[in-house]
Amino acid sequence: MREATLKVFRGTDYETGEFKTYKVPVEDGMVVLDAIHYIQKEIDPDVAVRWNCKAAKCGSCSAEVNGKPALMCKTRMDHFASDTEIQVQPLKTFPLVKDLVTNVAWNYEVNKKITPFTPAKDADWTFFQEDIERVQEFRKCIECFLCQDVCHVLRDHNRKDAFIGPRFLVRTAGLEMHPLDKANRIESLKDHGGIGFCNITKCCTEVCPEDIHITDNAIIPLKERVVDEFYDPVMMLLKKIFGKKQK
């Protein structure tokens, strides 16, 4: 049976932690998460890893495999040449807890600050498939936070103070484009969401395991809505004259 070599980060901080090498037998169709489970079962039961569904539906097993943010349950072992080491490490953008587990609590704090769904009191709840296709794409998000991890605004520049990150731009887009939502999140998107921090380099879209076109379908349309309200003098003037459009 083929054997794979995994280098797994072990430790509770980056100063003292180190990569530990494991040999793991490879079965057909095996994924990296299977290899980590093998290590837990047969070698080190205390290897810390988050996982739940093992079917790319819950977004728990996010890690960086050979430097690329990915879901371990979706990363096939046969994707790698058999003679190379596979390096598995935790998400870089978030504080380390242990081994492959990071503290992603910041994301949950950000989510709380987004104005929730606000339908009209008299809504009759009739709307059509074409009205919601966009929103449904955004609602496929499984909150794996890979986009947050890879986004250089958060990863390289650590601007968690001023930028909510792709995940929550997607969430905001899902609310703003809902045909029955009445709230306006555009101003807060500009001032508190930091949408201007995004320079649309599209890494979020590249890593999204749900194939959500984060940049093209969520972020850029939101950026243009911000332009409508804050940067386009003609639009702003028209709005002054004719009043804000009824949402």
């Binding site: 837990q40 039961p45 807890v97």
Partner: peptide, 10 residues
């Protein structure tokens, strides 16, 4: 159980 109590699945 081996190791410490920090995120220890075992």
């Amino acid at each position: 159980a081996n190791g410490t109590k920090v995120f220890n699945p075992g």
